[in-house]
């Protein structure tokens, strides 16, 4: 199971002559960093990394706050059309994203958003999954603290930001980790809405780098890129493993 990861790391420290020799050796001899320095010269890997991270952070913050607000209202407040709207949001989870990709691309094109960060971030901020998750969480919390705050004269916004949001942190973390990883890994949408090299995300940049080899594919360099591309998600996953797995189970409707 873990062999492909080990093989990736090992290959990334091999010289290209060792990789191309066709003789399999599980220890890089000599052990070199040349692949890592070579890729910084071949492609703007720092820029790809920054783009991916920037988009993932924005999408995570946006998704978390938008979902928490809506989830809170659906769990706690009474208003006209509440149940119908919530049902509608649930139904949006049934729509496979590929079905929407043509109209969305056209919308982004008409907005002149092609090759911008908003094109990468905005369409990923919404959906029933986050709202559903946050609503479930708030439904499970006791209301007494919020009622006390209301009696002390807080309006609904103050109550939400000062009382409910801090209590919602575990659920926010779950949703945040989930959104970050989804955003970092997303491929099809960034492939479609970016054209220029400086707007590529890590996955798309890597795929194009792979396609740029004509005669001999430099597997050592590609594996070095792969190692870099995997570090943030693995770090976040290991840090928040419990939250992440819990979130996947709660949201398995989405898949």
């Amino acid at each position: 199971m873990i062999f492909p990861f080990l093989w990736m790391i090992v290959t990334s420290f091999m010289t290209s002559s060792q990789v191309l020799s066709g003789v399999i050796n599980f220890i890089p001899r000599p052990f070199v960093f040349e692949n890592y320095t070579a890729i910084t010269q071949a492609i703007p890997v720092g820029r790809y990394f920054f783009n991916s991270a920037f988009v993932a952070v924005l999408m995570t913050l946006g998704q978390v706050i938008i979902s928490a607000m809506a989830g809170y209202a659906f769990a706690r407040m009474k208003f006209k059309g509440r149940d119908a709207l919530f049902f509608l949001l649930l139904v949006t989870m049934m729509v496979p994203p590929q079905v929407n990709i043509i109209p969305l691309f056209y919308l982004i094109k008409e907005l002149n958003w092609i090759d911008t960060y908003q094109a990468l971030v905005v369409p990923g901020l919404f959906g029933g999954f986050g709202v559903f998750m946050m609503r479930q969480w708030f439904l499970g919390l006791p209301q007494s603290l919020e009622e006390a705050a209301r009696i002390d004269g807080c309006n609904y916004f103050q109550t939400f930001f000062k009382i409910a949001l801090p209590l919602g942190l575990p659920a926010l973390a779950t949703l945040g980790i989930f959104t970050f990883i989804t955003s970092w890994n997303s491929f099809m949408w960034p492939l479609i809405v970016t054209n220029s090299d400086c707007m590529r995300t890590m996955p798309v940049g890597l795929a194009i780098f792979k396609g740029s080899f004509r005669e001999t594919t430099q597997w050592g360099q590609l594996m070095a890129c792969a190692v870099i591309a995997i570090i943030p998600v693995v770090a976040i996953f290991l840090a928040g493993q419990k939250y992440f797995i819990k979130g996947l189970m709660a949201g398995s409707v989405k898949e």
Binding site: W184, M223, A226
Partner: peptide, 13 residues
């Protein structure tokens, strides 16, 4: 949790 690009590259290799 690994990006599909990384999966694809490693397995192609």
């Amino acid at each position: 949790i690994t990006p599909m690009v990384v999966v694809a590259l490693v397995w192609e290799w």
